[in-house]
């Protein structure tokens, strides 16, 4: 039995099943967390009818969405309309395959894992656009056009920040990035100010871009409810809409995983002790959920920005600052090679 489980294809299959389950459970319960958080911030109880404190609410929502008829409105491009939810759901599942959740808990440890996550993450835009376009709905098309300009604008500072991190870590291997941050919490890349004094700024840029790339408020231009009904998802009902919703949360999970790995030390313990074995995933998930909580908190605290100020923020502030950090890191690597472990 153990022999059979050790076979590479079987192992990968098991990991894939686990990843699908993880994404599904996360999507369901993050919706509940979001609604509870929104309730908390708006001084109301949030969902509290289904089960104790509303913990069965996701189940009820799921059954409701599954029971609804999947409609393809007349005049839409039926094939693309049906394909778009699949295309939006598949990339985050692919990305999670390379995320190291613990010391040896990773489906496929690629030596170019970081690039893998970004290349599959970039399919998301295409899927949202096709969904919006295939709907043949004015709101959906406006939303699709917004998605593109937004994601193009925010992909640039995000990639610049990631290049900065690459120069610091010297590797694209996510497990290796985590291993470099062993020890106390000041060894995390976030606090490595002696490597680059602007490291915390880098993290803020990354987090902001992550919010924008996953279309979260205050940057949720793709489905600005009060302006565009539901944006690219206007014509979707039932599980079609449900899949888009799940994909949004799956993308948040991937983004927070990446932020945890790049800046917060991944599965490393913050206090130097209590690491290894099962502590790895505990620390990892703890950090990841703290970031996800921040995402929810930001959504219900900040109002939606206007579209031009959204673009201005990226092109006039984030890109110049991230270019600055890139240049500064390069200069520091040249002037003070002794602080960079990757150069030796």
């Amino acid at each position: 039995m153990i022999d059979f489980l050790n076979l590479e294809p079987v192992r990968i299959l098991l990991y894939l099943v686990a990843i699908c389950a993880f994404v599904g459970a996360n999507a369901a319960y993050l919706v509940l967390a979001e609604r509870k958080g929104a309730g908390r911030i708006q001084r109301r109880p949030g969902p509290n009818e289904a089960g104790p404190a509303g913990i069965l609410q996701p189940l009820a929502d799921g059954i409701k969405l599954l029971a609804k008829q999947v409609m393809v409105p007349p005049g839409t491009d039926a094939l693309l309309f049906r394909a778009a939810p699949l295309m939006v759901m598949a990339p985050p599942l692919m990305c999670l395959a390379t995320i190291p959740f613990g010391d040896s808990i990773v489906a496929v440890n690629l030596n170019i894992g970081l690039l893998f996550v970004f290349s599959f993450g970039s399919i998301n835009v295409m899927a949202l656009m096709l969904g919006g376009w295939a709907s043949r709905n004015k709101y959906a098309i406006i939303s699709a056009a917004r998605v593109v300009s937004q994601s193009v604008a925010y992909e640039i500072p995000m990639l610049l920040v990631v290049i900065t991190m690459l120069m610091v870590t010297g590797t694209l291997d996510l497990s290796e990035v985590v291993k470099q941050q062993a020890g106390w919490f000041w060894h995390w890349n976030l606090f490595k100010v002696w490597v680059n004094p602007l490291m915390p700024v880098t993290f803020v840029i990354f987090f902001t871009c992550m919010l924008a790339e996953t279309n979260r408020a205050p940057f949720d231009m793709a489905e600005a409810e009060s302006e565009l009904v539901a944006g690219a998802f206007t014509e979707y009902g039932g599980m079609g809409f449900g899949v888009f919703f799940m994909a949004e949360y799956a993308n948040i999970v991937v983004g927070c995983c990446l932020a945890t790995i790049l800046f917060l030390g991944g599965w490393q313990s913050p206090i130097g002790a209590l690491s290894g074995g099962l502590w790895g995933p505990v620390w990892f998930l703890g950090k990841m959920y703290a970031l996800i909580f921040t995402v929810i908190w930001i959504r219900w605290t900040f109002p939606r920005t206007q579209f031009y100020s959204l673009l201005n923020l990226s092109w006039k502030i984030l890109i110049p600052v991230s270019l600055g950090t890139l240049l500064l890191t390069g200069a520091m690597m040249k002037l003070m090679p002794f602080v960079f472990p990757s150069l030796h």
Partner: peptide, 21 residues
């Protein structure tokens, strides 16, 4: 991976954007 990042994530998106306009 570069093929996906550039051709799917950038080139195709730009073409679709051009088509939409």
């Amino acid at each position: 991976l570069m093929e996906i990042l550039i051709y799917v994530g950038a080139v195709c998106v730009t073409i679709v954007f051009g088509v939409m306009l």
